[in-house]
């Protein structure tokens, strides 16, 4: 009986993770800038979720919880130098100078993200890839809502300066939308 219950729990876990893997991997790739490291990050995040799977009913927002595990894992990996160690073995992502006018937007965005401090990159990704509101990002990163707003604005300014022909520092009628 107990064995059947465990099997059912694993089945539910597998079903849930299967629905989440695509979005998780995309999130991890943007954070890590490298698909190999992204896969390691996702593997660790879903493993950690498994160890807490029996308590899932106590978690208000499981998707949010899983994403926060992944982002915290990313920030931790930055701290202990894991990224640098893995980079020696993994294929390095192709990076380009953000000043190059002729490169495709995709490459410029990738380069710009890679040059952002880890927490600012996490803010931009959580806000614009995961569509998380400001307060949720603040809770995940352990900072204030004002800091999230500020980091988001700075990240968007950086992207705008180099993508789509927006000139550096020039006033324009467009505004920065960062509302939750």
């Amino acid at each position: 009986m107990r064995s059947e219950a465990i099997d059912e729990s694993d089945r539910l876990y597998t079903e849930y993770i299967t629905t989440q893997l695509g979005q998780l991997r995309r999130l991890a790739i943007v954070l890590c800038q490298d698909s190999h490291r992204a896969d390691d990050l996702v593997q660790e995040a879903i493993t950690k979720l498994y160890t807490r799977w029996h308590r899932r009913h106590a978690i208000d927002h499981l998707d949010r919880y899983l994403r926060s595990i992944l982002v915290r894992e990313f920030l931790d990996s930055q701290r202990v130098g894991w990224m640098r160690r893995v980079r020696l073995a993994a294929e390095s992502p192709e990076m380009v100078s953000p000043q190059a006018d002729s490169v495709e937007d995709r490459m410029v965005v990738r380069a710009l993200l890679g040059q952002m401090p880890a927490r600012q990159r996490a803010v931009v990704v959580l806000r614009f890839m995961c569509d998380l509101p400001v307060d949720e990002v603040a809770e995940i990163l352990g900072c204030s809502e004002g800091t999230v707003k500020s980091q988001t604005s700075a990240g968007l300014v950086t992207l705008r300066r180099h993508v789509g022909g927006v000139s550096d520092g020039a006033p324009s009628p467009r505004s920065v939308a960062v509302r939750s």
């Binding site: 993770i17 790739i29 698909s35 593997q43 879903i46």
Partner: peptide
Amino acid sequence: LLNTVADQPGIASTVDIGRA
């Protein structure tokens, strides 16, 4: 743009639910 960066076609994922 961010999602475009995330798209890396042709690179198979090594994530393994069974291993997790």
